[in-house]
């Protein structure tokens, strides 16, 4: 099992080793976001709203972690569809679990790389120290990563079932989550009914928790536990949806035609 997972990870490492544009793509949007939000917050700081700076930059960095995590899962399998390699993978004696573990490993590697680059840039350009959150970083990082995987399994299921036609959804679905996750503002800003929706997302607890840590230096373990529990449910739901889509693909004989869809 380990060897097959290694092979699948290796396939993606080879891809990135060779392509400067792909490596650039990992970092380009996060860095651009950081620059835009960084300068906006710099301006707000000068307007005497200093706390806003750390909230916005922190929100931006953590949001990108969630987004990259979802993308890593989805793009790994979509890539195989686009280059017509999906059948080669599915006729190899590899299980779906092994494919998923491999894509998660690739996702962790990419997320870590992005976090390090953004952390260094945020510190250098805006004196924002992501490590100031201390050990709280670990659960925040893990919850966002896992939620990204859950969403990623859902969008991967769509990619597998609908091929190219689902591309817009692959990119767009994370942005359906963003307004309700209270990334750049506290949940209390949202209308009451949307607050209920917001608290159904594990990511909301992380962004709320981040603001509490940065403001009061305190980590609320209870809300972390809720987020972890929810993540468990979302992961089970994401995996079930992916399994169902794969079943439909096999039923419809779509594997050899996905790149045409």
């Amino acid at each position: 099992m380990g060897l097959r997972i290694y092979a699948l990870v290796l396939r993606h490492l080879y891809l990135y080793r060779r392509s400067v544009t792909r490596i650039g793509d990992i970092f380009f949007w996060p860095v651009m976001n950081l620059l835009v939000w960084g300068f906006v917050t710099d301006y707000l700081q000068r307007m005497a709203l200093p706390q806003t700076v750390v909230f916005l930059i922190g929100g931006m960095i953590f949001w990108d972690l969630l987004y990259r995590s979802q993308q890593a899962i989805t793009l790994s399998l979509s890539e195989e569809i686009w280059v017509r390699n999906i059948m080669n993978v599915f006729i190899a004696p590899v299980s779906i679990l092994e494919i998923m573990i491999a894509t998660c490993i690739v996702g962790v590697l990419k997320a870590l790389a992005v976090m390090v680059v953004l952390g260094v840039l945020a510190y250098g350009l805006y004196a924002f120290n992501v490590l100031a959150m201390g050990w709280a970083l670990v659960p925040f990082f893990s919850i966002l990563l896992l939620f990204g995987w859950a969403v990623g399994m859902f969008t991967t299921g769509l990619a597998l079932r609908f091929g190219h036609a689902a591309e817009a959804l692959i990119w767009g679905i994370p942005f359906l989550i963003q307004p309700f996750s209270a990334v750049f503002y506290p949940v209390e800003v949202l209308p009451r009914w949307l607050q209920t929706v917001a608290y159904l997302m594990p990511s909301t607890y992380v962004f709320e928790g981040m603001r509490t840590v940065l403001q009061a230096g305190r980590l609320d373990l209870e809300i972390l536990a809720i987020a972890v529990g929810m993540n468990g449910l979302y992961l089970i739901g994401g995996a079930a949806f992916f399994g169902w889509m794969l079943h439909r693909v096999r039923e419809k004989g779509l594997l050899s035609r996905l790149y045409l869809e």
Binding site: L15, R84, S256
Partner: peptide, 8 residues
């Protein structure tokens, strides 16, 4: 109709 990744 099956290809190996062209960028490897």
């Amino acid at each position: 109709y099956v290809s190996l990744p062209t960028n490897l």
